[in-house]
Simulated assay, not measured.
Amino acid sequence: MVRSKRLFATSLFVSLLIIVADQLLKGWFDNNFFMYQQVIVVPDFFSLTLAYNKGAAFSFLSTAGGWQRWFFVAVAVGVSSVLTFWLARLEEKQKLQAVALTLILGGAVGNLIDRAFLGHVVDFILVHYKREWFFPAFNLADIGITTGAGLMILDMIINPEVKKQQ
C-alpha cells in the first residue's frame, strides 16, 4: 500500500533521472576516454578518468574470479526492492528520508545496470592530492548512494521521534 502517492511517484521519477544521468555520463566516458586517461580539472586535486571496478566499494572482491558480479547484482536487486517498498510506505512528512532513499535507489540501480550488462562498474571521477594520494575512482551513482546514506544518518539524528512511532 502506497501511503503518499505523490511522494512515491516523485521519488521514483527522481531516481529514474539519476539513473539516466549516471548511465549517460558513464557511456560518454567509456566512449571518449581510454583506460586510466586523466584530464586534470583542478590541478593537484580533481581529475576525470576512466576506470572499471569489478568489485564493490573500494574495489572490494574485484579479483575474486567472477562470481562476485552476480553476487553484487543479486544484492543490488534485493536492496533496490527493499528501498522501493520502503519509499512506498513513507508518509508525506518524511521528505528527508524520501530524498535519502531516492538517492540511494538511483545510485544502486545505476551501478546494477553496469554490473549486469558490462560485468563491471564504470567510474570517472578521481580525487587526489598531487600525485601522492588517490581516492578510488567513483561515479554519479556512488555520489547518490553516499549522499543518501549521509542524509539517512542526518534524518535519524534530527527526526528520532518518527522512528519510535513506526
Rank of each mutant, 00 (worst) to 15 (best):
R3T: 12
S4V: 06
K5C: 03
R6N: 10
R6T: 12
L7A: 11
L7K: 15
T10C: 11
T10V: 12
L12F: 14
L12G: 07
F13R: 10
F13M: 13
F13V: 13
S15G: 12
L16W: 05
I18N: 07
V20L: 13
D22M: 07
D30V: 03
D30T: 05
F33Q: 01
Y36M: 12
I40H: 06
I40C: 09
F45N: 08
F46G: 06
S47L: 05
S47F: 03
A51P: 07
Y52I: 10
N53V: 07
K54S: 13
K54Y: 13
G55V: 14
A56F: 11
A57T: 08
A57V: 09
F60T: 15
F60L: 15
L61E: 10
T63C: 07
T63Q: 14
G66K: 15
W67K: 11
W67L: 08
W67D: 02
F71L: 15
F72K: 13
V73H: 10
V75P: 14
A76G: 04
V77S: 06
V79R: 03
V82R: 01
V82Q: 04
T84D: 05
T84E: 06
W86N: 00
E91V: 01
E91R: 08
Q94F: 01
L96Y: 01
A98G: 07
T102V: 07
I104E: 08
G107H: 00
L112F: 09
D114C: 06
R115K: 01
R115C: 00
A116M: 13
L118N: 12
D123Y: 08
I125L: 15
V127C: 10
H128M: 10
Y129G: 09
K130F: 06
R131L: 10
N139E: 09
N139K: 10
D142W: 03
D142K: 03
G144F: 01
T146H: 03
T146A: 02
M152Y: 04
I153A: 05
L154R: 08
D155V: 02
M156W: 09
I157R: 03
I158T: 02
I158N: 03
P160E: 01
V162D: 13
K164N: 12
Q166S: 13
